[in-house]
Every structure is written in C-alpha cells, then in structure tokens.
Design a protein around this nucleic acid. Structure first.
Lengths: 133, 133
DNA sequence: ATACGACCTATAGCAACTATAGGTTCAAGC
DNA sequence: GCTTGAACCTATAGTTGCTATAGGTCGTAT
C-alpha cells in the first residue's frame, strides 16, 4: 500500500505552506517529487517524513543551513555517533540563551523609560529624550 | 560656527556604517545632504542628531518603519502630547516580552532534549528522535 | 605631482520566506 | 460529457535591514 499526496495534502499534513514546500524544493531541502500527467507534484510518505523533520527543526529555531546538516546526519548509517547533533543543539542552546539575555536587557530599558515618562508632551517625553541623546 | 562632516565622520560620530547611512538616505530616513564640488556628501549637526536618534531607536529594537513614526512625532511642535510614543513603546515592550517567552520555552525544550540524549548513535539520539516524530 | 584613502554609483546578495500575475489541471456535480 | 471552481503550475518581485562587490572619482598630505 502506497500513499500519495498532492502538495496541498502535504502542506496540511506537515503544517507547512504550499509555497514554502516549493521553495524548499527549489533550494534543495526537499527532493523533486514525481509528477502527474498534467504536471502536478505527487509526494510519498518519505517526503512527508522529511518535511516533518524540517518543520520541527525550524520550530526549534535551527537555520535552514543547520537543518541541512541535521538531515544529512540523520541519514547516516545506524551506529554513527550523534556527537555532531549534540554539538549543533548545544551551540544553538547557547545562542538562544544569548538572545534571551539581550531581550531581557532591552525589556529592562524599555520598562525604565516607560516608568519615568510622565505622559505629557513630546518635549518632556522620557522615551524621546532617551533617543535624542 | 557651523560644523560639517563627511559621511565617514558621521559614521564615526554615530556608530553607523557608511553604507548604512547611504541606505538610510535612499529609503528616506535621512534627508539628502549638501554636496561638495566633487559630489561628496556634506553633513551638518542636524543630520548627526537625527542619525543618532535613528541609531538609538534601532538599538532599542524598533523597526525602521516605527523609527519613521518616532521621528515624525519627535518633530511635532512643543506641547503635542506624547501618548503616541507611549503607545508605540508599550506595544514594543509587549512584543519583546512575547519573544522572551517564546525563546524561554524553546530553551526548555532544547535543554530537555539534550538532557535525555545518551550521546551514543544516530538511531538513539533524542534530539533526532524529536525531529523524526 | 602623485599616491592613496575616502568617497561615489549601481547592482546583487543574505535569510526565509511571502505575494503577485497569469495560466493549466483536476475532481465533483449536473 | 460538460462545466465550474478550487487547487495546481511557473516565474518574478517584494519583504527587512542591511552588507558586499565592482569599477570608478575625489580630496588631501607629502
């Protein structure tokens, strides 16, 4: 029993937009599927699985370039150590933490500015003051 | 006494790259400055102040489109209420907090995956498992 | 007078899509 | 069998906020 999906089906199954699927094909993240007589793309289970992988990796914030690496690692023969995956994920975690730290600092600054703003006129606005130097 | 700056000077004074200054001019964030006989841009104090404003607003994470709004509000006559600024800044703060929340959730997910990874082979890797569904 | 850094324009590229235009195919209902 | 309309097709341009490249000109210090 073999499953066939249209590009719309695949989008629904994976939570991916149709245009994005075509885009992934164009940049080589997904392989070219078969075509119907009229030229419509026909996908199988392996495309669905691969796209699901891509989608989840993107949800975890990995770049498409990193997704490429993760895909190729995940397709290595059984027994291959997963140290590379570990390394990629750890580095990503570090970056996520750095972003959180930067945004928290920004949050504090904005809170400070809004706190001291007396909400009156533009020449007394603490937010504008902070920008004007 | 009037001050004149070359584009390089302006970049140094504001911490902005020369190409970025030209880009800001192109998209209308900065007005076109005067030119030397040979066609080099000549800036004055008002350009420096405006660019400083832009730069600081960008550092606070405001989009260029929002920076445009902030600039135009800051140039309204004295006495204009700053409620709009307040509104823009508050909304931005909300967005910053949303981003922090999303990244924290992501951080937790990644930590969890890395924690349970036994660091062995690709077919047992918890990180890849999570992506494979 | 000459060297050389700083400047000039125009165009393309980056990430990761999204939007638009204009045309074709497929499947369901009559 | 025919029609309708949603879903599909391609190609190209736009988004944000810059950065990079190429190929040339200007300004100033010696």
């Amino acid at each position: 029993m073999q499953e066939n999906f249209s590009i719309g089906d695949l989008g629904r199954l994976t939570g991916c937009q149709v245009v994005t699927i075509r885009y992934y094909e164009k940049i080589g993240i997904l392989s070219e599927p078969g075509r119907s007589a009229g030229g419509h793309r026909i996908y199988g289970a392996e495309h669905r699985d691969r796209l699901t992988f891509v989608r989840k990796a993107r949800e975890l914030g990995f770049s498409l370039d990193t997704v490429r690496s993760l895909l190729s690692i995940s397709e290595t023969p059984e027994g291959t150590p997963c140290a590379d995956v570990d390394h990629i994920a750890s580095r990503h975690l570090v970056e996520v933490r750095e972003k959180i730290a930067a945004l928290k600092s920004l949050e504090g600054t904005l809170e400070g500015l809004l706190d001291i703003c007396s909400h009156t006129t533009v020449e007394q606005c603490s937010v504008l003051d902070a920008l004007r130097d």
